Simulated assay, not measured.
Amino acid sequence: MGAHAKPSPPALVDHHCHGLLRTEPGPDAFAALLSESDAPAPSGTTFLDSQLGYAVRRWCPPLLGLDPHCAPAEYLERRRELGPDETARRLLRSTGITDYLVDTGLDDDLTGPEELARAAGGAAWHEVVRLERLAERIADAAGDRAEFLAGLSHAVGEAAGTAVAFKSVAAYRYGLDFEPNPPGQAEVRAAADRWLACRTPGGRLTDPVLLRHLLWSAAETGLPLQLHTGFGDPDLTLHRCDPALLTDFARAVRPTGSALVLLHCYPYHRSAAYLAHAFPHVYADVGLALSYSGARAEAVLAEALELAPFGKLMFSTDAAGLAELYVVGAELFRRGLARLLDGWVGDGAWSAGDAARVAELIGAGNARRVYGLGPG
Rank of each mutant, 00 (worst) to 15 (best):
residue 2 G to Q: 09
residue 4 H to Q: 11
residue 5 A to F: 05
residue 7 P to E: 04
residue 13 V to M: 04
residue 13 V to K: 04
residue 14 D to P: 02
residue 16 H to K: 05
residue 17 C to R: 06
residue 21 L to N: 13
residue 22 R to C: 01
residue 22 R to V: 08
residue 23 T to N: 08
residue 24 E to I: 07
residue 24 E to T: 15
residue 26 G to P: 00
residue 31 A to F: 07
residue 31 A to S: 09
residue 32 A to Q: 15
residue 32 A to C: 10
residue 35 S to I: 14
residue 38 D to P: 01
residue 46 T to Y: 00
residue 48 L to H: 03
residue 48 L to T: 13
residue 48 L to C: 09
residue 48 L to I: 15
residue 49 D to G: 04
residue 52 L to C: 12
residue 57 R to A: 15
residue 58 R to N: 03
residue 63 L to G: 04
residue 65 G to K: 00
residue 67 D to Q: 13
residue 70 C to W: 08
residue 76 L to M: 03
residue 79 R to C: 10
residue 81 E to A: 05
residue 83 G to T: 06
residue 84 P to S: 12
residue 85 D to Q: 14
residue 88 A to F: 00
residue 89 R to L: 05
residue 98 T to D: 12
residue 100 Y to N: 04
residue 100 Y to L: 13
residue 102 V to A: 02
residue 102 V to F: 02
residue 103 D to S: 05
residue 107 D to A: 13
residue 108 D to W: 09
residue 111 T to H: 00
residue 113 P to E: 10
residue 115 E to S: 00
residue 118 R to H: 09
residue 119 A to P: 00
residue 129 V to Y: 01
residue 132 E to R: 08
residue 138 I to A: 10
residue 142 A to C: 11
residue 142 A to P: 13
residue 152 L to Y: 09
residue 160 A to S: 15
residue 167 K to H: 12
residue 168 S to C: 07
residue 169 V to T: 15
residue 173 R to H: 13
residue 173 R to F: 12
residue 177 D to W: 10
residue 179 E to M: 06
residue 187 E to M: 03
residue 194 R to M: 07
residue 197 A to L: 11
residue 204 R to V: 09
residue 209 V to S: 10
residue 210 L to I: 05
residue 211 L to P: 03
residue 217 S to Q: 12
residue 219 A to Q: 06
residue 227 L to N: 06
residue 227 L to T: 03
residue 231 F to P: 01
residue 232 G to H: 11
residue 237 T to R: 14
residue 242 D to T: 00
residue 243 P to V: 01
residue 244 A to P: 01
residue 245 L to H: 12
residue 248 D to M: 02
residue 251 R to I: 12
residue 254 R to E: 14
residue 257 G to D: 08
residue 258 S to F: 02
residue 262 L to R: 05
residue 264 H to C: 10
residue 264 H to K: 04
residue 268 Y to R: 03
residue 268 Y to D: 06
residue 269 H to A: 08
residue 283 Y to M: 05
residue 285 D to C: 12
residue 285 D to Y: 06
residue 286 V to M: 12
residue 288 L to M: 13
residue 297 A to H: 12
residue 298 E to F: 08
residue 304 A to T: 01
residue 305 L to A: 04
residue 308 A to D: 06
residue 309 P to G: 08
residue 310 F to Q: 10
residue 311 G to R: 04
residue 313 L to A: 01
residue 313 L to I: 11
residue 318 D to P: 00
residue 320 A to K: 11
residue 335 R to S: 14
residue 340 L to V: 00
residue 340 L to G: 02
residue 340 L to E: 00
residue 342 D to I: 02
residue 344 W to F: 11
residue 344 W to Y: 15
residue 346 G to A: 09
residue 347 D to N: 07
residue 353 G to Q: 14
residue 353 G to M: 02
residue 353 G to F: 03
residue 355 A to P: 01
residue 357 R to E: 15
residue 362 I to E: 10
residue 365 G to D: 07
residue 367 A to R: 00
residue 372 G to D: 02
